[in-house]
Computed example of a mutant assay.
Amino acid sequence: MWHALTWEAAAVGRAVRRCVTQSGTERDTAVQSLKAAGAALLAWALAGWWWDAPMALLAPWTALFLVQSTVYRSLLSALQQVVVVMVGTLLAAGALMLTHNTMVAMALVLPLTVLLGNYARFGAHGLYAPTAALFVLVYGSSSGIDILHRLLETLLGAVIGVVVNAGVLPPVHSRRVRHLRERLPRDCADLLHTVADGIGTPYDEERTRGWYDSAVRLTDVVTELRAARRWSDESNRFNPGRRLRRSVVAPPPADWDITWDGITEHIRATMRSLSEAAALPEGVPGILSALLRAGGDVLGSRDGETDERRRSLEAATAAHHRLTSVLADDRHETTPALGGLTADTHRLLADLSAVVGAWDGDAPRDDRRQSAR
């Protein structure tokens, strides 16, 4: 127990230090938290202190939850919350006026508002429908002026929450896309180099399964990239500050996401064929080692290493030609695994050629680094 508490305290300390010293998720979370608290304070100052509204709590309560992670989400959440609060309030007021009995009105309204709150279009804000109904039923505030106050205060809080989120450092989420696009080439290169070093040793089922698992994790990174891309695109929708914040670099374009999808998928297929290849013809492990090492050199090369990258691609292509020759040579005993490896590495080389073309000259000079990385 003490160890767990110590570890948690250390993790919190590291997060606080990163929040202060560098930009990242921790700082983004801190900024959004402070904005939400500020929006709630501003809403209370207007509704509770200046306006002296009878239901002033609704304004800061609404503003607090509408400082969302994107401006678009704040707008959508504001619409959802205003609608569900309005519906819940009107249903409760109508039921109370009709029955003149709190228990009967509650029995009529709560099942309907809870079902309404689970409607997918309302998202997490759907539960505010029965909550708003309970406020009306429990406190008996069902007069026209009370209902009007509830709706106006909710609307005030929604407006303040949206304006604060959009006007004060509006969030832009492009950092994750850039991070994953830089990580993919590095992780692919590391795996190919690891396999090239180990393929010449005797077959080990557990080790080849580990290679395959690592390749599957690469495809998971591509899935993360797609999710980060959607998140980045959403953060730019209706965001008034994205053109004013010079520190925010545009994320790499999506043109080459499908290429990296192909590269990771073909690496995964190659690792699967290797895991099934208990025995390969003589000389094939050495050829595969040279091919995969050269492919890793292509992906692990840095900006400006154009000649080295081209030479690595040529070396990988030459190794694949030798592999094809072994497959076609009647003097060698071929196996289904060898045919699968030849086909898988051929598709991998095709994608590597496309990436090298993008890095070295087929893409416009200003877009080369972003288009592939």
Score class of each variant (00 low, 15 high):
P364I: 02
H332D: 12
H332K: 08
R183A: 07
L152K: 13
G361H: 02
P252R: 05
P54G: 14
S301R: 07
V284N: 00
T29Q: 14
A166L: 00
A189M: 04
A129K: 04
T62L: 13
A105E: 03
R373K: 12
H125K: 13
T317S: 11
P111A: 11
L288K: 05
L116N: 13
V172G: 03
R322C: 11
P252L: 03
A45Q: 02
M86Q: 14
V83D: 02
T21W: 09
R243A: 09
V109H: 13
S247F: 06
G198C: 05
S214K: 06
A315S: 14
L280M: 09
V67F: 02
T25K: 07
L41F: 09
G123Y: 00
R268E: 06
P54W: 02
Q68N: 06
D146V: 08
L180W: 01
A39I: 01
S301Y: 07
A11W: 14
N118A: 09
P251C: 05
S353T: 15
S214Q: 13
G198V: 00
V109P: 12
M271V: 02
L90R: 07
L5D: 15
V195N: 00
A59Q: 08
R27E: 06
A215W: 02
P336H: 03
P130L: 03
A277Q: 02
D187Y: 08
V164Y: 11
P60T: 00
W2G: 10
G167F: 03
G88L: 06
S141Y: 13
Y119G: 12
L115N: 15
N101G: 10
W256K: 12
E308K: 05
T208I: 14
N101M: 02
L192D: 09
V87E: 10
A158K: 03
T223M: 04
G157D: 04
T102G: 04
V249Q: 12
R310I: 11
A294W: 00
R73M: 04
W2K: 15
S33W: 02
R229Q: 07
S353M: 15
Q22I: 01
V177P: 02
D213W: 11
E26A: 04
T324Q: 08
R17N: 13
T99S: 06
F238S: 09
V221Q: 14
G295Y: 01
L225C: 06
V159K: 14
A47G: 05
T113L: 07
H149L: 12
E205S: 12
Q22H: 06
D190N: 08
P185V: 00
V172Q: 10
R207M: 14
K35L: 02
R18N: 09
A189R: 02
D28V: 01
D187W: 08
G200H: 07
D362P: 09
E206S: 14
T270C: 01
G339M: 01
A189V: 00
P336R: 01
A158V: 01
G38F: 01
A92M: 10
D146I: 11
P285V: 03
A166C: 03
